[in-house]
Write a protein that binds this DNA or RNA. Structure first.
Lengths: 219, 219
DNA sequence: AAAAATATTTAAGTAAGCTTAAATTTAAAG
DNA sequence: CTTTAAATTTAAGCTTACTTAAATATTTTT
């Protein structure tokens, strides 16, 4: 299948996961930087390939086959991120940018080699789960957005859900990293801001950030 | 530039290096598995982009710009081969197959990271020279084909110039590997065969193989 | 040096993956 | 509930990278 198709099913998959927007052609088009018309065309075409269900004006829904394809691409993306992050001195933004391209030119064979080399990791450096070779995500996600945490509690950063360079630069600068511990010192619910303590520094995060930083409670 | 263009200039570059065939559209088409007509079309198009010189019925000649592009792709290919070969348990044929795809989706930035990680190697696992970041090959090649060696002399394998799985399987089985030492025990000039001693095994190689195995004299 | 074989080029056409503009449908607002 | 706004779809068209078939030029053979 082509790169365009892989990116299309991946975009649908990710849009569903975030359940931020409804999964209609327009929203997918926005993510991919193509016109609405192109997205509609592609949706129709993929329906004939049994990758998704298409009904005029309705949301797009991946078939089992489509989901499997999406997870296969996601797997390769996250394995590349894991490998590049471990081997080279590259930022979260940089590994994402490179993996976005490499994911489409990676055989299942090579993906398995990378996975094996890394010890079959379950999570990538963003904290996102890595599907296995069968396209299954076996871990369950108990993490919550920082915006939903309780004042006074201690948490462990589990996911940084973004592709944005500036966000990652901010994270790197402030020690916001997968696995690190933070204390939520104050929730400003009216202003939708969260104050946290990390590495003995107090920082105040606004909604944009507290919605994409995910954490787990400490046990 | 597109993958098709990168592959086209690369094919011209490699055809020139091997100086096996004249570098006309038909020969390039054969290498790329496309029709002659497609190759002519592409050649004309690349001439307008100043990547090569095109004159009807004449050989294609890369411009400086075209050569630089080809060397940039070759660099990425050989760096990937070096990395995959070092990290994973993969054969020469497998690393070639994967690198053939990865080479087109690799930023200069990542290529430099890979090079740095490997200690800026000058040769890949096939013994082929790796162009530097400026697209220059700084090593000079003193190696000769096994078919041109002298009976009784000892040599070091310097290059295995092939993409063929069977050839690499044969090499792996018999210890024919970049850097290994062999003794040429007999040249059967009439039958174009060469007998060598390697790892205490005597093997007889025919022309197909002695023309693509390159060696250096020991000092 | 002419005839035959081979390669190259031209011409016409196709599929993928887009575009813009107009028409249609749905969703939102008053 | 009607009007307005927004999104989706259809239609027509473009570019890239091919294809096959026919025309033309070059090589090779005799």
């Amino acid at each position: 299948m082509s790169i365009a198709i892989e990116n299309f099913v991946k975009a649908i998959y990710k849009n569903d996961k975030n359940n931020s927007n409804d999964t209609k052609p327009g929203n997918i088009a926005k993510k991919l930087g193509i016109s609405n018309a192109a997205a509609t065309d592609m949706a129709k075409k993929l329906a004939t390939k049994d990758l998704l269900h298409y009904e005029k004006y309705q949301e797009l829904k991946l078939t089992k086959k489509g989901t499997k394809m999406a997870l296969n691409v996601v797997r390769k993306h996250r394995l590349w991120e894991s490998l590049l992050f471990r081997m080279f001195d590259m930022s979260l933004h940089e590994i994402h940018r490179e993996s976005e391209l490499l994911e489409h030119q990676t055989s299942d064979f090579l993906a398995n080699k990378i996975s094996e080399y890394l010890g079959n990791p379950k999570f990538d450096p963003h904290g996102d789960p890595i599907p296995n070779a069968q396209g299954e995500i076996t871990t369950k996600d108990t993490s919550i957005a920082l915006s939903n945490t309780q004042e006074g509690n201690t948490y462990i950063i589990s996911r940084l859900m973004s592709d944005d360079k500036e966000f990652f630069d901010f994270c790197a600068l402030n020690g916001l990293k997968y696995g690190n511990t933070i204390v939520v010192t104050k929730q400003f619910s009216k202003n939708k801001m969260t104050q946290i303590l990390i590495n003995n520094n107090t920082i105040l995060l606004n909604e944009d950030f507290t919605n994409i930083i995910y954490v787990n409670e400490t046990n």
